[in-house]
């Protein structure tokens, strides 16, 4: 990220957004709400976030790890081939099926994808998960467009109203 002249912290994505501090703070609040309020079980959020990062080949998003999400190393290793893999529960498979269409196949999301998620999640949870996947997708696009790079980050949560976006 050669174009950002201001001093950088250990959270360069947050630094870039902080060029417009009022928008950055509101974005932190919006994105952070998913994690702060656990609007969807956090393991589902984390799996979707990582799978979308993988599809975008977005290293900076991929390198962020939510240490308390309960995702095993084995699950991360097999994330690309989750379908039918018993490492992933039925609800995890349901949300991954939906999430991985968000980056490039959003018109191929089906009524059945939603019905399958609804078998496991409430309607408010499905709404929150849809917003979450949209934001995971957007974050990857922004990181890639802005050429934000950082090293591996293990963190309590990728975002929160009172913390820098990892």
């Amino acid at each position: 990220m050669s174009w950002l002249t201001k001093e950088q912290s250990e959270y360069p994505y947050d630094d870039v957004l902080g060029i417009r501090p009022e928008l950055r703070d509101l974005y932190r609040n919006f994105y952070g709400k998913l994690w702060d309020d656990e609007l969807v079980p956090v393991n589902l959020l984390e799996l979707c976030r990582l799978r979308i990062a993988q599809i975008h080949e977005c290293d900076t998003e991929w390198e962020v790890r939510h240490s308390e999400a309960g995702i095993s190393d084995e699950q991360i290793q097999k994330l690309q081939n989750w379908e039918g893999n018993q490492l992933f529960s039925p609800v995890e498979q349901a949300v991954l099926r939906f999430a991985e269409k968000m980056p490039w196949q959003h018109h191929e999301i089906t009524d059945k994808d939603f019905e399958t998620m609804r078998a496991h999640l409430s309607e408010p949870e499905v709404v929150a998960l849809t917003v979450a996947c949209g934001l995971f997708d957007a974050n990857c696009r922004l990181r890639i467009a802005l050429s934000v790079k950082q090293g591996k980050k293990e963190t309590k949560a990728p975002a929160g109203a009172e913390q820098a976006i990892r």
């Binding site: 417009r20 009022e22 928008l23 509101l26 974005y27 609040n29 919006f30 709400k33 998913l34 309020d37 609007l39 309607e123 408010p124 709404v127 929150a128 917003v131």
Partner: peptide, 25 residues
């Protein structure tokens, strides 16, 4: 009305989007 299933999320989005459109930069 769909986002209203998550009122906190809807409010946070509304503030962000309104600020974006309301700013002159």
């Amino acid at each position: 009305s769909a986002l209203a299933h998550q009122p906190g999320l809807a409010e946070a989005f509304g503030k962000l989007y309104a600020t974006f459109w309301g700013s002159n930069e």
